[in-house]
């Protein structure tokens, strides 16, 4: 465990010193927040509430969506792609640490650095330009934090599974981008799926993605009852278990392939 804490620490130092591309995301999230705030304001001009949510709540939703997106930045896909490309996976696997544990710790480290470099600035900009995104019912805070934690893990596992495609010798750089935007779209991060046609929303409900953004954000803005939230948290947890199971199986397969085929 101490090893992984040290990896997190090293990653924080590394992110603080070498990574300069943090402002790009602030600009990008600011643009997303502002354009969607105009979009929602226009939509709500003639009505107070839609699908049980009012305009104010929707603005909170989009700001928190951008804030949450920082926690959901993963680098594991690119890490896998690079180490497969450079051929260092096999030797990395020899070290007395779990390779994916290392990638996980690195992503945690990067995100901790981003909390200051990215998340707080985005929260500040959203608060100044749009509104202060206060939580509807602070009694829901524990549930919200729990669902964010599960959302983080689900998102990371999907990313790691995605990265493992790199082991089949496909160039995944372009796919990584597609996946990133697809998740934002399918997870209700920009438009909650309760605004989608029922058939589409049904399909999306059956997928894990809405548990990445929409569930924690719904809890935050207080859409739905606590009983509903608890039920959804259970489904979220089941998704986590399913993805973890798939991850372990695929990881075992991939490790064996590297050991037999030489990476």
């Amino acid at each position: 465990m101490k090893k992984y804490l040290y990896i997190i620490k090293t990653q924080i130092i590394k992110s603080m010193t070498y990574e300069f591309n943090v402002y790009g995301n602030i600009v990008m999230q600011t643009i997303i927040m502002i354009t969607s705030s105009y979009f929602w304001k226009a939509l709500y001009r003639n009505q107070n509430s839609a699908a049980g949510v009012n305009a104010e709540d929707m603005l909170t939703y989009i700001i928190m969506s951008s804030v949450l997106s920082v926690l959901l930045i993963t680098n594991v896909e690119r890490r896998i792609e690079q180490s497969v490309g450079k051929g260092t996976v096999a030797t990395d696997m020899m070290k007395p640490v779990n390779l994916f544990g290392v990638y996980f710790a690195e992503d945690i480290g990067s995100i901790l650095a981003l909390v200051f470099q990215n998340m707080l600035p985005i929260l500040l900009i959203g608060s100044l330009l749009i509104k202060v995104p206060v939580m509807k019912d602070s009694g829901d805070l524990p549930l919200f934090l729990l669902s964010v934690l599960l959302s983080f893990l689900i998102n990371w596992l999907i990313a790691a599974l995605f990265g493992m495609i790199a082991f089949t010798a496909v160039n995944i750089s372009a796919l990584i981008q597609v996946k990133k935007h697809l998740i934002r779209l399918l997870s209700g991060s920009i438009i909650p799926i309760w605004f989608f046609p029922e058939s589409v929303s049904k399909v999306l409900s059956a997928l894990p993605f809405i548990y990445i953004y929409q569930l924690p954000l719904s809890i935050y803005i207080g859409r739905g009852s606590r009983a509903e939230h608890l039920a959804q948290l259970q489904i979220q947890f089941v998704w986590l278990l399913i993805l973890a199971g798939v991850f372990v199986a695929v990881q075992r397969q991939v490790t064996r392939k590297v050991m037999v085929q030489g990476g």
């Binding site: 101490k2 090893k3 040290y6 990896i7 090293t10 070290k95 007395p96 640490v97």
Partner: peptide, 9 residues
């Protein structure tokens, strides 16, 4: 090196 020092304890 420091990282390896921790990884290999």
């Amino acid at each position: 090196f420091e990282l390896l020092k921790h990884i290999y304890e």
